[in-house]
């Protein structure tokens, strides 16, 4: 595969993996918890580095999962002690993220990891960091990690589809019939953490947040079916990656930033032009209703 193809594949994988997870987050009103986790995961990565002294994929995933869970747990803890949820999220994520950034600045320039990188990633370097299997190059590490997390997320959603659906729509009923809603909650949190850390290296925290939240919100404006919303969200994530890459190449600007911008562009399209929930469709419906009312008034 060519250099460009690897980059595009990476972007599309980020879009699909984060997109399908994000649809669930939107429905569960946890967009900002996802935002928090994708920031605090930095602490997990730095922590894993301090323990293992290397930027190895597996310890990074574990560190990220731990800190991701901790974030969700702390937010829940503050929430249940009476702190309003927005403020709880704000305190937890800024604290853990700040800690991550400060620790990161102690590591120094010796390793390929800095604050800039953590925020924006460097997708352009992805194709050069390849996995060596049996002495042969077997594609970029990032693509392998992302593919793994993608398959994991897909499997989790397929296995727990019913449980996700009911615990999202009606958690009380879910508990009453014995669905382990707390387990489902932390399962989703770990999906978010894994998606974040796998995407982190290539696209950075900011694009992860965008890919987790915006495609899901866009899909929410386009469909009234749960399953379709997850699929659409993944597709929109992928399309954003493609559009963003194209724009970045033409304008010679940040690839991750462009992809985030592209998610916003697609969201804007859906916001105005969605046939079911778009601003214009709603406006036309209201006009028609008014017209009908007027005609009825004239007839009677």
């Amino acid at each position: 595969m060519t250099y460009t193809a690897w980059i595009i594949l990476t972007g599309v994988l980020v879009g699909v993996t984060c997109g399908m997870t994000g649809a669930l987050l939107i429905l569960r009103r946890m967009a900002m918890i996802a935002d928090a986790i994708s920031h605090t995961v930095l602490l997990g990565i730095v922590g894993a580095f301090f323990v293992t002294q290397s930027l190895n994929g597996i310890p990074m995933l574990i560190g990220a999962a731990i800190v991701g869970m901790l974030t969700a747990f702390f937010v829940q803890l503050l929430d249940s002690s009476g702190v309003q949820s927005g403020a709880a999220i704000g305190v937890v994520f800024t604290s853990l993220f700040a800690l991550g950034v400060v620790l990161l600045s102690f590591i120094g320039d010796s390793v390929h990891l800095d604050v800039q990188h953590a925020l924006m990633g460097e997708i352009a370097f992805v194709p050069w960091d390849t996995l060596i299997l049996g002495g042969k190059e077997a594609g970029p590490v990032a693509v392998w990690m992302l593919s793994g997390v993608f398959l994991l997320n897909l499997a989790i959603i397929l296995i727990f589809y019913k449980e996700f659906k009911i615990s999202t729509f009606d958690p009380q009923m879910a508990i009453s019939i014995g669905v382990p809603v707390v387990f489902i909650h932390y399962l989703l949190m770990s999906m978010v953490s894994f998606s974040t850390v796998a995407s982190f290296d290539s696209v950075g925290a900011i694009l992860v947040v965008a890919m987790l939240i915006v495609p899901g919100a866009t899909a929410y404006l386009l469909t009234d079916r749960f399953g379709l919303m997850i699929i659409l969200s993944a597709v929109i994530g992928a399309v954003s990656a493609l559009l963003g890459y194209g724009f970045a190449v033409v304008m010679d600007v940040s690839i991750a930033g462009s992809m985030a911008t592209a998610t916003g562009f697609l969201f804007g399209l859906a916001f105005f032009f969605s046939p079911s929930h778009g601003l214009i469709a709603k406006w036309v419906r209201r006009k028609n209703m008014q017209k009908n009312l007027n005609e009825e008034a004239r007839v009677s």
Binding site: L27, K165, I166, T168, F169, D170, M173, Y220, T223, D224, R225, F226, L228, M229
Partner: peptide, 11 residues
Amino acid sequence: FPTNALDVVLM
């Protein structure tokens, strides 16, 4: 929530 009446009953 994106779902229809029948689906809710199925839950």
